[in-house]
C-alpha cells in the first residue's frame, strides 16, 4: 500500500490543489458574469448536470486535499502511533461522510439538463 507514502501523497496534494483552483476560478467567473446571484439562478446553476457534477468533484477534491493536509500535520506533531492512527481514521471517515452527504444533496435536487 504505497498510495499515501512518499511522492504519491505529495503529487495527489498538488493535483487536488490544481483541480480546486480550476473549479474556484470557473465558479468565480460564472458568478461574477451574468445577472446577480439570487435563489433562482443559484438553484438552476447548481442542479444542472454540469453544476451538480462539478460541485461533487469540488467536494471530493476538497476532502482528499484536506485529509492529506491533516496527515502531514499528524506526521509532524503527533508521535503516539495509536493516537495518530485514530485521528487519521476519524478525520478520514468524517471527510468521506461529508462528501457522501454532498452527493446525496445534489442527487435530491438534481434537475438534469445543461
Amino acid at each position: 500500500m504505497r498510495l499515501f507514502l512518499g511522492q504519491r501523497a505529495w503529487v495527489l496534494q498538488r493535483v487536488t490543489a490544481l483541480v480546486l483552483l480550476f473549479l474556484l476560478a470557473l465558479g468565480a467567473a460564472t458568478l461574477l458574469t451574468g445577472p446577480p446571484l439570487d435563489y433562482e439562478r443559484w438553484h438552476a446553476l447548481a442542479t444542472s448536470t454540469h453544476g451538480a457534477v462539478l460541485i461533487v468533484v469540488f467536494f471530493a477534491a476538497l476532502g482528499l486535499h484536506g485529509w492529506i493536509g491533516v496527515r502531514d500535520i499528524a506526521l509532524d506533531y503527533i508521535h503516539a502511533p495509536m493516537l495518530r492512527l485514530a485521528l487519521l481514521a476519524v478525520v478520514g471517515v468524517l471527510l468521506f461522510a461529508i462528501v457522501i452527504r454532498v452527493v446525496l444533496t445534489m442527487a435530491a435536487h438534481f434537475a438534469g439538463g445543461a
Partner: peptide, 11 residues
C-alpha cells in the same frame, strides 16, 4: 529518498 519521512517532510 522516495519516502514520506526522509524527503517529503519538507514543506
Amino acid at each position: 529518498l522516495d519516502d514520506v519521512y526522509r524527503l517529503f517532510r519538507c514543506r
